[in-house]
């Protein structure tokens, strides 16, 4: 069981670069990279909200629950 982060898919759909998204959301590119690579252990609601706002999507478009 794991939570997959499909941030790169949404970023590709919206044609937005990592640096631009990080700047718009208000997090560092390093933290965005942690999120994209699935190394993050938790995500704040405020960060998720900002990501959804900038990518014009729902949390479910970014996060996916996968059962082994």
């Amino acid at each position: 069981m794991e939570i997959l982060v499909n941030l790169d898919v949404m970023m590709a759909r919206r044609k937005i670069s990592s640096n631009e998204l990080a700047e718009r959301v208000g997090i560092t590119p390093a933290n965005l990279s942690i999120l994209k690579t699935g190394k993050a252990k938790a995500i704040r609601f405020s960060t998720l909200m900002a990501l959804c706002r900038e990518l014009r999507c729902q949390p479910g478009d970014i996060l996916e629950y996968k059962e082994n």
Partner: peptide, 8 residues
């Protein structure tokens, strides 16, 4: 701390 560091 490691959990906090990996909280985005």
């Amino acid at each position: 701390k490691s959990e906090l560091d990996l909280t985005v």
